[in-house]
Amino acid sequence: MKIAISASSPSLDSEVNPRFGRCKMFIIANPESMDFETIDNAGESAGGGAGIATAQMITQKGVEAVITGNCGPNAHKVLTAAGIKIITGANGTVREAIEDYKSGKFSASDEPNVSDHFGMGGGRGHGKGGAI
């Protein structure tokens, strides 16, 4: 059993990255053994649809849950279709998030907790409509 946590650096002591679609990387960890691997998030630099691209990648990693800060509607839809539990509102370190997951402190969120483009920064509208 594995879970994916959005992270800022490749370590269990990394802070949980608050953004799902545009986080730097994911730590894919086995909560029992605390073994983990790190994968870069190709969606970080996507022009649009970052959440979808990131979710698509995560669905191929065989995880049962995703722990992150915020998850928008499109990513939520893709992860839900794959039967992956989504836990939002996490903060602190990746290690703490895994511990909290093991102890059952989190409950899965049935709905996206932020609107689309929430994690883009620099104002709404950026990247919308795009290059056509």
Binding site: G43, A46, G47, G48, G49, A50, I52, A53, A55, Q56, T59, N74, K77, V78, A81, A82, G83, G130, I132
Partner: peptide
Amino acid sequence: CAFNAIAVVKDVVLTFPELCH
């Protein structure tokens, strides 16, 4: 898809027309 307007998971294809160019 250069615009991430389609996702395929298991036996579901999800399309996002608002992102499609």
